[in-house]
């Protein structure tokens, strides 16, 4: 028995045998196990698609008059068919250096990892076009890179490309923490209408609606607090109008200015 030293995953091949009589030929490894009944002296033929998992196999021929072993490598098909593309994170603040990472595993049609070095391209693009590109050669079946998030909020496409195979992920670049919170107050029907100016991060991106702003009014020993979501860029609330009360606002770990309410003067 003289098997070829290696065959391509999923391809047809034959293993010549010598002698006479009947025998069984096994190809066994952790990735797959197949068997053929053979007439010794005739080659054992394996059609395309029979042995398709890349790996190292023991080939054994066993019969009444024969007991022989050999080794066989099944190598991945050279043509990439699918990409395992891990793009992380799916959402990150703007202006984060090396905040976006992409790792590509390249597979053939039988989901074997192609370990032969291949050039891979990773690119970030927004509505106006490509903003960052990296070309990396795979090593051990893997190519990876890191990229910066933009200063401007919005979604970007993160595309991995190997040959004519590509895979796309969407990355959401979101505003960072509020840069400053400025509040103002005005009397309204015997109460106090307190609202923020439009809230932005330090790159000028509007903080998204729904973000909580906590208003606190302190008067003597009393305190009124309310968590208000931003709507259309501002947070607005009606609070008790106590002359001499102090009103402040905060969002997360960012505090805003404080107002001393003097009764509208």
């Amino acid at each position: 028995m003289t098997p070829p030293p290696s065959v391509t995953a999923g391809s047809a091949f034959a293993i010549p045998t010598t002698g006479s009589g009947k025998a069984a030929l096994y190809i066994v490894g952790p990735a797959q196990a197949v068997r053929r009944d053979v007439d010794l002296g005739q080659p054992a033929s394996f059609a395309a698609g029979v042995l398709y998992n890349a790996g190292h196999y023991v080939v054994l021929l066993t019969g009444d008059s024969v007991a022989d072993t050999a080794e066989l490598d099944v190598v991945p098909a050279p043509q990439p068919e699918t990409l395992g593309f891990l793009a992380k994170p799916s959402r990150l603040p703007v202006g984060t250096p090396n905040g976006i990472s992409g790792a590509i595993y390249i597979f053939d049609a039988y989901h074997n990892l192609i370990t032969k070095p291949l050039p891979a391209t990773l690119e970030l693009s927004n509505a106006s076009g490509i903003v960052q590109t990296r070309t990396v050669t795979t090593l051990n079946g893997l190519a990876w890179t890191e990229m910066n998030s933009a200063e401007k909020e919005g979604t970007v496409k993160f595309v991995a490309r190997v040959g004519n195979i590509s895979s796309t992920r969407i990355i959401d670049q979101v505003p960072g923490d509020p840069c400053a919170i400025t509040i103002s107050a005005a009397p309204a029907n015997g109460k106090l209408l307190v609202q923020t100016a439009p809230v932005h991060d330090c790159s000028g991106n509007a903080i998204p609606d729904g973000t909580i702003v906590t208003f606190t009014e302190t008067y003597n020993n009393m305190q009124t607090t309310v968590d208000v979501p931003l709507k259309q860029g501002v947070a607005r609330v009606t609070m008790p109008a106590y002359k001499g009360s102090k009103i402040s606002a905060a969002s997360g770990v960012v505090a805003g200015n404080e107002i001393l309410w003097g009764g509208g003067q």
């Binding site: 952790p30 990735a31 790996g55 190292h56 490598d73 190598v75 991945p76 192609i114 370990t115 051990n140």
Partner: peptide, 8 residues
């Protein structure tokens, strides 16, 4: 997740 003999 991936376990493959390196035959290349």
């Amino acid at each position: 997740r991936l376990f493959q003999a390196d035959t290349q």
